[in-house]
Design a protein around this nucleic acid. Sequence first.
DNA 1: TTAATAGTTTACAAAACTATAAACAAATAA
DNA 2: TTATTTGTTTATAGTTTTGTAAACTATTAA
Lengths: 109, 109
Amino acid sequence: MTDKKIFELHADVCKALGHPLRIEIIDLLQEKEQCFSDILNETGVLKSNLSQHLSVMTKKGILKTRRDGQSSYFSLSSEKVAKACLLMREVLLENLQEQQKILHKLNKT
Amino acid sequence: MTDKKIFELHADVCKALGHPLRIEIIDLLQEKEQCFSDILNETGVLKSNLSQHLSVMTKKGILKTRRDGQSSYFSLSSEKVAKACLLMREVLLENLQEQQKILHKLNKT
DNA sequence: TTAATAGTTTACAAAACTATAAACAAATAA
DNA sequence: TTATTTGTTTATAGTTTTGTAAACTATTAA
């Protein structure tokens, strides 16, 4: 497989995390598998919209899904997804702190 | 800060990784800081396009940039960016292997 | 069988993203 | 100063993503 193809697929995986609702879903799934209706209640979006976002993440290999009777269950495909997501959160929080520091310094002068 | 806002900012950081060229750039910067023209030579895109993509990542706190004379230098803002990116790459590669296994099984039957 | 529940898929308009080209700005060289 | 190099910004057209609504499928209940 060419590097170019790897970059595309890698970007696709990252892109699958690049939406606020999908980040919220990843957060919900950190602890344990959840069923569709629970995620629906928790997030409060339209069911069609939720289904689409879950589908995006499942297709890119971020989530696993299984059906049990009438319910669909979703979970993180790998511990690594959770870890990567946590690292990105930390990068964000560190940047926010950095910005706060700069603002604080500006206020002092 | 509300959870909703955190999800948005977190998604923004992830989204900043969600493009093949930007993944390629992250790869280039793993080892060490690089200047604009080196990245330009390595990637072979238009300079305006490269500048835009570098700007996206810098604005979202993925990259740091500094100017030295005529040259601009870019580097990863944090070791955590590299680690998160590596984890996502591993998720991708594991998924690809999984798909290969399934294909292999199908061919056997 | 018929109705109800739980999700998924499709269609489509609005919004966001991307690549190209052209204009622009800053630093160095002539 | 004027020209050149290095990179940034802006404008724009084409593409992709997104949210809503409606149609659809599969499972369970009556």
